[in-house]
Structure formats: C-alpha cells, structure tokens
Design a protein around this nucleic acid. Structure first.
Lengths: 214, 214
DNA sequence: GTCTATAATGGGATAGAC
DNA sequence: GTCTATCCCATTATAGAC
C-alpha cells in the first residue's frame, strides 16, 4: 500500500496522478497527496519545486511514453506504401488502450487527466500538452493523407480532431473491461468516416449548416 | 458592461458561466464573479444559497434549452418513417452549433463548461449532467436504430458516445468562425461511421485488438 | 434586497533543525 | 533527504446593520 522500496519521488508522482485524475488539480491538495503517498508534505517542494511543476512532471512522464508508443507503431504501419488506413488508426488508438491494461487502472486515469487538460484552456498545462501533441498529430495527419491520397489533407486534419475527441472521452468514461471492444469499434467507425466522400448533399450542408435542414 | 437593467440574479449567472468556463469551478472565486458582475459578494448566497447551487443553476438553464432544441428538431426528423440518418444527426449537432452563434460567445463557453463537467467524474454535477442527458441520448439512440434497422442497437448506442466526444471536444476547442463547417463535417463523418458494416477484418480486431496487428 | 465586516477554514510554500 | 512548525494568504459562508 505504501509502495515500500519505491522512491519518494515516484510515490509522489503515482499518488498525485491518481488524485489529480480523480478530483482535479485544484481540489487535490498537497497535504492529501503526501499523506496518501506516505511521504512528508515538504517533499513535494523539495523534489519538484511547486504543485504546478509536479503536474508538469506527471504529464511529461506519461505523454512521452504514449507518444513514443504511437510513433513506433506508426512506423510499422508506414512500412507498406501506401499504408493501410486501419493500420494507421490502430497506431493512434491502440497505444492509448494498451495504457489501460496495466496491473491497475493507471492508463485510464491518465486519459481522465488528459481530458481535464483538454478542458483547461488558457492554462500553461493545456498549451504544453498541445505542443507535445502537435508533432505527433502532424505525423498521423500526414500518414492518413498518404493512405487516402484523393482526400483533401486539410479536411482530414480536421477530422483527426473528431477521433481525438471520441477516443479521449470514451476512454476516460468507459469501464475498464469495455475498452478493448471500444477501441476496435472506434477504428472501424473512424476509418469509415474518413473514407466517406463529400456528396453534393453534405457539401451543401457544410456551406449552409443551419439553413439546409431547418 | 455592467448590464444595467439586468437583474442581479442574471448578472451573476452570466458572469459565473463565463468565468467557470474560462477558469474552472474551483479557480473562479465568488469574489471575482461578483466583482466582475458588479454586484455584492453576499448576493450569491442570497440568490443561490451556495457556490455549488450557483453552478447547478447555470447548467440547468443551458442544458434544458439545448435538450429542448434537440428534441424539437428530432421530432421533425421523425416525421418521415424511417427517418433519414443525416436528419437525426443534424438534430443532435446543429442545436449545439446554434448555441455558438449568439451575439457573444455564450454557446461556445457552455460547451467548454460541458467538457469540464465530462472531465469531473465523481462529482454530483457530473451525475446530474448525465442524468439530464440520459433520456435525450436514449431518444437519439432509438432514432438512429430506426434509421439503420439492420445494425445492432447496442453498438449504435456505443457509437453515439463517439459523436458526443467529437462534438464536445471540437466545439469547445474551435475558433467560433469554424464551427459551421465543422458541424457539417461531423454529421457526414458520423453518418459514414454509423453506416459502416462490421467486416470480418474488423470483427477480428474487436475480438483481439492488441494481438491482431502487433 | 443589499451592504460591510468578519468568522472559520484550509491552502501552498518555506525556514531551519536534524 | 526528511522532518516539524509556521507564515501568509485566499477562500466560502454568514451575521447583522440598513
């Protein structure tokens, strides 16, 4: 329970990640974190400098790992030319899912934290997260364009945001046992959405979204 | 600026909605809210009872309006039998978009607030929101099943969550001027995703999401 | 209904001994 | 590196005059 043998620094990281995910950054207090981690209150400022810096360390640890896993799997998908769309989407979705299959619920907690970071516009954490994400998103957008050479790259890039939204919200919300099925469904769902051509009907709806159907 | 002629109660609601959306429930303080609204600090507790009750009042005001607009447009779509899938999805997406077209950015702010509520699992606000949403979601899931009679209703219900995630995240993130195009794209994207059949390939991926492609 | 003043609490950060 | 004790500050909520 008190993770004997794990360093103070790591105990703080693990406990803070859990409490930030469950309660939010401003609700979880350093007193609560250090008490549940079984370390001294002053240890946070000694090891990290501030509560904000602790939060950034938590994000860096997981986001670096998630991005690396995605990049690695994307590289495999790109060995075929052009890449298979489903393979590219798998490379984006499955690492997030794999995160949720550790011994405990670590990965899902991080997705909840990610969702909070998305909601916290105007914070430096939000900016940092989007910057960390930016080059990964660009590589995936390029790969998708490569898989679908006839589609407009800019539109595909926009639609990648749909996938991010669907993935983040459902992975953060779902019961753990459902995530495997959900990830597979999401890849199928997203692949069909990306492949769908722009019909004259929908092109009209895009130009006049409110008037078109009222 | 100080909304002369608007009641104290409404000035508090408007200002609190903005600050809660921009900063979050626990960061925005009653002092800041009342100061920017041009009302006395004690007025919040007089009119609402507590900060929590103020938040619930904010959500009730907008969510009731959003749900009513969606239901009304869904009823129109259901006048044809079976309903057109795109019409049903429009009934879900367009009212959220219409919210973002007021004189100011009210609607988009509310979508940001909604995103925060999604992130705040384990709060009574999250529970209240999902309960308010539940019967609307059920009606839309039924309508989608009606439009796609060959698909498994349970899978369609899961996929509706993808659409909610994509809609909420993109509407909360996007610049205001882009929302019209994005909503039309989302309807097209989601319709294709919902219509996509389960192939043997994807069925296998659903059963063995990690092993299938590693 | 609106105000001032204040009570009651809890927070992050730090100083300094060990 | 770790601890105790404490500083300093902000918060919500309320009491009571007007």
């Amino acid at each position: 329970m008190f993770q004997l043998g794990v360093s103070t620094r790591d105990r703080i990281l693990d406990t803070a990640e859990r409490l930030f995910a469950e309660q939010g950054f401003h609700v979880a207090t350093l007193r609560q974190i250090t008490q549940e981690a079984g370390v001294n209150l002053a240890a946070v400022n000694y090891h990290f400098g501030s509560k904000q810096a602790l939060m950034r360390a938590i994000f860096k640890r997981r986001l670096d790992a998630l991005n690396a896993a995605r990049m690695k799997q994307l590289d495999i998908a790109l060995q075929t030319d052009p890449p298979e769309l489903e393979e590219v989407l798998d490379a984006f979705v499955q690492p997030a899912l794999a995160f949720t299959r550790g011994g405990d619920a670590e990965g899902q907690r991080f997705m909840q934290l990610l969702l909070r970071a998305f909601a916290d516009r105007d914070t430096d954490l939000h900016q940092a997260m989007r910057q960390e994400y930016a080059h990964v998103m660009r590589r995936f957008a390029d790969a998708i364009s490569h898989a679908l050479p006839d589609a407009d790259p800019e539109r595909l890039r926009q639609q990648l945001d749909f996938i991010v939204g669907a993935l983040t919200l459902t992975m953060a919300e779902s019961a753990l046992k459902d995530t495997r099925i959900i990830a597979g469904e999401l890849v199928r769902f997203a692949a069909a959405g990306l492949r769908a051509p722009v019909t004259e009907e929908t092109a009209r709806a895009v130009r006049f979204p409110l008037e078109a159907r009222s």
